[in-house]
């Protein structure tokens, strides 16, 4: 499903990043970074909630708005019952909608926000997301201090929170179009190789987006996928070339590989993941480059793995989804 929009604009973005992201190459694009994973709180979950609060506060400050002016806040995260977002977004807007699309949540929120604005149901919408390395690790894998050996294909959940303010008032960046993804099941079941699990969804959404709008990959200055990591990224390039004869070698990258210096930061293995991974790169680095007019047309494809530890233990496959949104400099 692909929509195009005429009157949806990006007013402002905000990013707050964790200690590992601070060591990465994109440090200068973040509004705020935190020194340690606790962020002066007692638990990792509370630290994530505080990051959500901070990112929303920074967004309001940067946009010069007060909280009564925003119609809806949309967002989600990885914690059970999306608690980081709900606890963090208390009193942050007139209304709230909690969403879950795993690591694709931010684009899901942006699409719903854009539709609300485009249909004139809302004037100002905030989309927000967050993830926390050790809070996610605790929930999805072993205890955080356990540190069981992982293969190189495993990804590293990014820590941070990022928000974006969409409005109907003209600004220099507009939301041009979006494609809603479908649930993809390619028989994958390795939680330590999420790049391979999700690359299929990214390929499917990218292909349908280009087909629906009758575009070639060259139309975009940059196409980024959310959190496939260095191996998943190669699958996308390879498959697009082989099956559809589309060359992505010049203008395609993956947020998971952009967020960290993978040569130096060995602990990040194949690259970053988590809902905030694509959001930090898009709202930090990409947004900055678009404001500077160095990038004019960008397609962000946020990829998510739809599963739970319970379903893995019950021998079910890991499904995936990818949602795409295109931003253009006006």
């Amino acid at each position: 499903m692909t929509f195009t929009y005429d009157n949806v604009y990006v007013k402002e973005t905000s990013t707050i990043a964790g200690p590992y992201e601070k060591e990465g190459p994109l440090k200068k694009y973040f509004d705020k970074t935190i020194k340690d994973l606790y962020f002066n709180e007692k638990s990792f979950e509370k630290a994530e909630i505080k990051m959500v609060k901070e990112s929303i506060n920074i967004l309001y400050k940067k946009a010069g708005l007060n909280k009564k002016e925003v119609d809806v806040l949309l967002g989600g995260d990885l914690l059970n019952q999306i608690t980081a977002t709900t606890y963090g977004a208390k009193n942050a807007s007139k209304c709230f909608l909690g969403l879950y699309g795993a690591c694709s949540t931010i684009v899901e929120a942006m699409i719903i926000g854009s539709v609300l604005i485009d249909s004139k149901k809302a004037k100002k919408v905030i989309a927000t997301t967050s993830s926390h390395n050790t809070a996610a690790e605790k929930q999805f894998r072993n205890p955080t201090e356990y540190g069981a050996p992982k293969p190189d294909t495993a990804t590293f959940t990014a820590t941070g929170s990022a928000s974006i303010l969409l409005t109907d008032e003209e600004s220099d960046i507009k939301v041009e179009s979006s494609t809603i993804g479908q649930i993809i099941d390619l028989g994958q079941n390795d939680a330590n190789n999420m790049g391979k699990v999700m690359a299929g969804a990214a390929i499917d959404t990218l292909k349908r987006h280009l087909k629906d709008l009758n575009r070639k990959p060259e139309y975009y200055d940059l196409i980024v996928t959310g959190d496939l990591g260095k191996y998943g990224k190669e699958i996308v390039k390879d498959y697009m070339k082989k099956e559809y004869d589309m060359d992505l070698s010049k203008n395609y990258d993956d947020c998971g590989t952009l967020l960290y210096d993978l040569k130096k930061q060995k602990e990040c293995l194949a690259g970053g993941s988590g809902p905030v991974c694509s959001a930090l790169v898009s709202f930090g680095y990409i947004y900055h480059e678009m404001r500077q007019k160095k990038l004019k047309k960008v397609l962000i494809i946020a990829t998510g793995a739809l599963f739970s530890p319970t379903m893995i233990y019950q021998k079910e496959n890991i499904y995936s989804i990818a949602n795409a949104i295109s931003l253009e400099v006006v």
Partner: peptide, 10 residues
């Protein structure tokens, strides 16, 4: 998919 993806496994 598996045919292409297999090449990029470690």
């Amino acid at each position: 998919y598996e045919k292409v993806a297999k090449k990029h496994e470690v």
